[in-house]
Design a protein around this nucleic acid. Structure first.
Lengths: 195, 195
DNA sequence: TTGACAACAGAACGATCGTTCTTTATATTA
DNA sequence: TAATATAAAGAACGATCGTTCTGTTGTCAA
């Protein structure tokens, strides 16, 4: 997309999307773009697709790509040597949620209690993003159910048996008798600093 | 929406939406829900609308609401005899972005490089949620600009002058000559575990 | 001045969409 | 056992959708 007009059309589409979280029909886009022909709208969207601002679902529906939400460089007041950063603005989605949550229906947030995983950088009060499932791999940090409590530990193996290893020398390794009940696997961590 | 089935349909819709950012046609939703009749799909969506999980654009297209994206937040201590369905029971619903970001226009996400703050539980590769401003309080973790580089350190004072204290004994305290340029204050931290 | 191309407009069409209405199967309650 | 709700299935239909193809208009270079 090398074109001024297309940039303008993209802006209009972005504005509409910010309001409605949805790319409407060609007929509606005619109004939005101030154009009278659907075929030309299609040509525009095809160009935006080639420029990777939008794409299609297998059903043919238009959806935005990551680029669709990216801000132009001019807007970020940054000096030289700025590391890769993103501005969290309204128009975009819930980008952190999107980053941490792959399967919403299986994902739960659990507040961490205690400091048994402190050496893994997991503090008291942190919020763990947990994907619910019953199996995990050695080395995963898992939420297990021990004595009717949730506990967050690293899953390990010792003499053929599963054990739960804390990341704090002050806590003991947990060696469950019988089966180990796994609630889910840690896929993300969130911490809020008081202000 | 007081209904188990509808909760299941909502989950499937949320998972589809997480993949495609789009609510598809009734015909497609038949497949997703495992249902054969469009009219029943409409009935389901209408109930989800009454429960404020989705709504309609003026054109009649279905779009998600804020509630659609909220995740359950559970406390770590849970009662006895929990089945795997657990968390739906009690507790609030949260959107991670809203939890961490108060002022979107002033908030930036920066990926952390290095381990100079490891004792504060901030690891290499973590994403820092930074609120841009030029002033901070003693004890805040700040993003400062030192020698044209961004650095994340704790702001402290020594003999009346500001210093930047790492949370790792292997790194030196930074004592800026002249003014200290502060880019922003750390308000949140996000970590993603690879799967 | 002509020819080529870009930027649209407009019509035509079959496919698909959402809606409504009717029917059926199962579960629950009286 | 009968009545009623719930959870769907299915057909029928007009509206709308995306697509394709053909025109039209303006611009600019040769």
């Amino acid at each position: 997309m090398n074109n001024d007009k297309d940039t303008e059309y993209l802006s209009k589409l972005q504005d509409y999307y910010a309001d409605w979280k949805n790319i409407p029909s060609y007929a509606r886009l005619c109004e939005i773009f101030g154009i009278a022909s659907k075929s030309w709208v299609k040509a525009i969207l095809t160009r935006l697709e080639e420029a990777s601002f939008i794409e299609r679902t297998p059903d043919g529906a238009w959806i935005p790509t990551r680029q669709f939400f990216a801000r132009p460089l001019a807007e970020s007041t940054v000096q030289a040597g700025m590391p890769a950063s993103v501005t969290a603005t309204q128009g975009d989605f819930f980008i952190i949620d999107e980053m941490l949550i792959d399967t919403p229906s299986k994902t739960t947030l659990i507040t961490v209690k205690g400091d048994s995983m402190i050496d893994a950088g997991i503090h008291d009060g942190d919020v763990a993003v947990v994907e619910k499932r019953m199996t995990a791999n050695i080395g995963d940090i898992v939420v297990a159910i021990v004595d009717d409590n949730f506990t967050l530990k690293t899953l390990d193996r010792e003499n053929g048996a599963f054990i739960l290893r804390p990341a704090n020398p002050a806590y003991p390794v947990i060696r469950p008798q019988g089966t180990l009940e796994i609630f889910g696997v840690l896929t993300g961590l969130v911490r809020k600093y008081r202000r």
